[in-house]
Measured scan of single mutants.
Amino acid sequence: HERALMVNRLQKLTRMLRVHPDPKWKQEQQELIKRLK
């Protein structure tokens, strides 16, 4: 369940980064990718 939330968050971040590349979001995205591996 928590994994699904993280995947959701990651997808949302990816969409937001396409619109507005924010370093903070980029960092969070990298963190999520690490944790999901």
Rank of each mutant, 00 (worst) to 15 (best):
A4L: 13
N8T: 15
K24G: 07
M16T: 01
P23D: 05
H1L: 11
L10H: 00
K37Q: 15
L17D: 02
L13T: 01
V19Y: 13
P23C: 04
E28C: 00
K12N: 09
R3V: 11
E31C: 11
Q11P: 01
K12F: 15
P21L: 06
K34L: 09
V7W: 15
T14S: 07
M6S: 04
K24P: 00
E28M: 06
L5N: 13
R35V: 09
H1F: 14
Q29F: 13
Q11D: 09
A4F: 09
R35G: 03
K34E: 10
R18W: 03
W25Y: 10
R35K: 14
E2A: 11
L17M: 04
R9N: 02
L5K: 15
V7N: 05
P23A: 07
K34R: 12
K12W: 15
V19R: 11
R15H: 13
E2V: 08
D22P: 00
Q11G: 06
P23E: 06
K37T: 11
K34F: 07
M6L: 13
P23R: 04
M6Y: 03
R35A: 12
D22A: 02
V7L: 15
I33L: 10
Q11Y: 09
L17N: 02
A4E: 14
L36H: 01
D22Y: 08
L17R: 01
Q29G: 02
L5V: 11
K26Y: 11
W25R: 05
K12H: 12
R15E: 14
K12D: 11
L5R: 15
A4S: 07
Q11L: 14
M6T: 04
L10E: 01
R9S: 03
Q30M: 11
R9I: 10
K12R: 09
L13A: 01
M6D: 07
P21T: 07
V19D: 13
K34I: 10
R3T: 08
T14R: 08
H20Q: 09
D22S: 08
K37S: 11
R9P: 03
V7F: 12
P21Q: 12
P23N: 05
W25L: 15
